[in-house]
């Protein structure tokens, strides 16, 4: 949405598109913020159950995914530097690395969720509802919603990056007009930012 003015308006205002992107990021923060409020209240009300349920999650996969996201955040940040230095090849390479890392993140997530399903844990599953305490039901409910919504943002972010990649390739995003790439980067960092909080809150409860 940030690139829309660039075609209809004769002048190009990178500050406006950056501000627009930031404002959009604020709404995303509040969107996840709502979920963090829910999480925080229920953890406050069910501390023991949250701890028990948290131990079911695989810290190793979580840590690997954290590092993947952090690295991808670095590569996309570097890609703007590469673009500004007019190194188109390196820009494209870094963007491809970012997308591949995002894909690896999703594959990991897929296997992680798959294991949970295999153990009979999914939202509203009989095992969850009949054999677990209320706090654990809430934990897994929130786990699926929050990581699911985060994964959705990963997918949106990937599409955003791919669009930017295409534009860099065509040359319409270049050192003089880098807004779209910068905004894709901002969005991707947001995804990273949310994961920075999701990881300890779900995987590191003891």
């Amino acid at each position: 949405m940030e690139n829309v003015t660039q075609h209809s308006e004769p002048h190009y205002d990178p500050e406006a598109s950056k501000l627009g992107m930031w404002l959009f990021i604020f709404t995303e923060l509040l969107l996840f913020g709502g979920l963090f409020i829910v999480y925080s209240i229920y953890r406050f009300l069910n501390p023991v159950a949250f701890q028990l349920a948290g131990e079911e999650l695989n810290v190793v996969i979580g840590a690997i995914n954290t590092i993947i996201l952090l690295v991808s955040s670095m590569t996309i940040a570097m890609s703007t530097t590469a673009l500004q230095q007019k190194n188109k090849k390196l820009t494209l390479f870094l963007l491809i690395v970012t997308v591949v890392l995002a894909l690896v993140f999703l594959v990991n997530k897929y296997f992680e969720w798959g294991t949970k399903f295999h153990h009979g844990i999914w939202p509203g599953s009989p095992h969850l509802i009949n054999d677990m305490s209320k706090g654990e039901i809430l934990f897994f409910g929130l786990y699926f919603v929050m990581t699911g919504l985060h994964a959705l943002h990963i997918i949106i972010g990937m599409i955003f990056i791919l669009v930017a990649l295409k534009r860099v390739q065509k040359g319409t995003v270049n050192a003089d007009r880098p807004s779209l790439l910068e905004n894709a980067g901002l969005y991707w960092h947001l995804v990273d930012l949310i994961w920075i909080f999701l990881f300890p809150l779900f995987y590191l409860i003891h």
């Binding site: 952090l70 955040s73 670095m74 590191l204 003891h206």
Partner: peptide, 25 residues
């Protein structure tokens, strides 16, 4: 224009802190 190495240092700091928070558990 931010040089590449700055981003790399930030990444190292981030990863270190991730391991520290895991260790904290």
């Amino acid at each position: 224009i931010v040089p590449y190495r700055v981003y790399f240092y930030i990444l190292l700091a981030l990863i270190t802190m991730t391991f520290m928070s895991i260790g904290l558990v």
